[in-house]
Design a protein around this nucleic acid. Structure first.
Lengths: 325, 325
DNA sequence: GTGAAAGCGCTAACAC
DNA sequence: GTGTTAGCGCTTTCAC
């Protein structure tokens, strides 16, 4: 690998000039520039990244941490962050955390050792993590939940659930069930609140909490359907906290001879690919995932570069109507 | 940020000793070690990554490039690669390429500038890219297809399709249609070959090529179903080149009053989450995605570290039987 | 077992 | 417009 020295020798200029050609070309004469460029070309010179960042306070790399689960939701966030980061000349280092054993330490270390400048963490709704002392002072932006007072990007789940409940009510549904997540309460509270606000009643027997990730989600949906069938109370609508749960519920309702949406309307949350692919297509709530990723990256980079940034940024969800409700 | 100098001063040793304590602790006395450790602790010292890698030939970062599409398939590959890379002390830098405008250049530059050591590229089946001169000599491992003579990881699609066709035949299906990808021929060839080998005939009117990514996939499935309905030739089975295509076909068949699998059996390819979520569940071909990611990372890192590596590694697919066929 | 010193490749004063 | 030089934080001979 040839270095700046080699290029300088080849072009018969000083290394400072070579450096200038690549970092501040405006100040060097055209003649010299041409000489340097062709010398660099000839030697296949590429400036050394480490040497460069060693002299700078900013490395140009941000870490994007997502939970350890296969989910298009998080990929879209990464994609959004990467899209934006690219425009600012930053690279993305992938980080992951186990949803049960939060381990931020490793990535904090990368930032402290100046392998990266900061961290975007897609926490996921209603997950909360204990503060990490070492994280103090390093640039962090989170998505969906707040962490240690750092800026965060979120959507108003409470409002989203209210809207979907009201949508169902507008469709003349009155006996509405709810399948939420074990790990969170916000959507459930929103659900109950929306029902009550509209002078309806919810039935605790039609409210259950399911799993959030992996195969278990699917099993939760089945259990829910079997439970309501067993007690013989069939709601005329079910609000689910994710599209995967909704897909599962639809699948098991149909298997048991019920029609969706004629007998039971079902709504999802997230608007991932699945919502479109199942039959009937799922009416759901969309979150602007890519945009959230972008914004998180923007905030983080601004913070890294020393600008003042917003404390939190909320995005609006929207209902995507398909056939299931 | 405190540096090695500060620690040396604090511990009253030379900077060389501090360096040894962190890189080759065996050679320094316990007494000194303790002094250095506590000084480092006190000052919150973290070795500077750039300074370190500037002196080493290996950085400890590999780039994983995936196509610019939201698909669990590729995430699993990234996850597998990251899992393994971690065990070898490597980080993952995310790379992306537009499937239409292949741009490897940017990442090659990162490797040349020693911001990373090599590249894993998840090309995707039957996509081929023109050689890139600059890529010569940098460590690259690809997934699914060969690129410029570099090592690659793949599954035998030909065999996989044969198996699924034979599975359908064993289920007494004889009029089998095929919905493939515009961009590839291998699966189609495998399909035709399997049909002929088993003394059946395929009908060109029941063979179509669909889109591979995004919303268009879904439209392709619809077009396929509408086309066969229009010509009035309903096959008793359809082999699809992806689960998403299969899900679409199932959806439109059902919408048109056909039963799956009673009237038409449908098979997919990939075994992504969707295959389980739709009703009926999709019988499909599974590729060991995470393992493929792991192996790619392993090969790449071995190559980076100067070991001899395999030219190509094949993995076995397996049929996952659900209800659709 | 430890220290002094050279040097990795580069940037940024500072001088001319 | 260009060159000289100090030094970023570290590893690694080479002495002792």
């Amino acid at each position: 690998m040839s270095s700046i020295k080699d290029v300088a020798r080849e072009a018969q200029v000083s290394i400072a000039t070579v450096s200038r050609v690549f970092n501040n070309p405006a100040v060097v004469s055209n003649q010299t520039k041409t000489r340097v460029y062709s010398a660099a070309e000839k030697l296949g010179y590429t400036p050394n990244f480490s040497a460069k960042t060693m002299r700078k306070s900013i490395v140009g790399t941000i870490i994007v941490m997502i939970p350890d689960i296969s989910n298009t939701f998080f990929i879209d966030i990464v994609r959004g962050a990467q899209d934006y980061a690219e425009t600012r000349g930053y690279n993305i280092l992938m980080g992951r955390f186990d949803i049960h054993h939060f381990d931020l330490q490793k990535y904090i270390k990368l930032v402290k050792s100046k392998a990266a400048d900061g961290i975007v963490m897609a926490i996921g709704h209603n997950r909360h993590f204990a503060p990490v002392a070492e994280a103090k002072g390093i640039p962090i932006v989170t998505i969906e939940e707040e962490f240690m007072g750092n800026p965060y990007i979120y959507v108003d789940n409470f409002e989203a659930i209210s809207e979907i409940v009201e949508y169902l009510i507008s469709k003349k549904r009155s006996q509405i069930g709810f399948l939420g997540f074990k790990s969170e309460r916000e959507r459930l509270l929103a659900f109950k609140n929306a029902i009550t606000k509209n002078n309806l009643k919810y039935d605790e027997e039609l409210i259950k909490k399911g799993d959030e990730f992996g195969e278990a989600v699917y099993a939760s949906a089945r259990e829910y359907v079997e439970a309501i069938l067993k007690i013989g109370k069939i709601p005329d609508a079910v609000v689910c906290a994710s599209d995967v749960l909704a897909a599962g519920v639809i699948k098991w309702l149909i298997k048991n001879g019920l029609r969706v949406p004629q007998d039971v309307a079902v709504t999802g949350f997230d608007n991932i690919e699945v919502a479109e692919l199942v039959q009937p297509g799922i009416t759901t709530v969309e979150q602007p995932r890519e945009i959230m990723g972008r914004e998180a990256a923007r905030l983080l980079i601004n913070k890294i570069e020393g600008h003042e940034v917003a404390k939190k940024i909320a995005f609006q969800t929207r209902i995507v109507v398909r056939e299931s409700a």
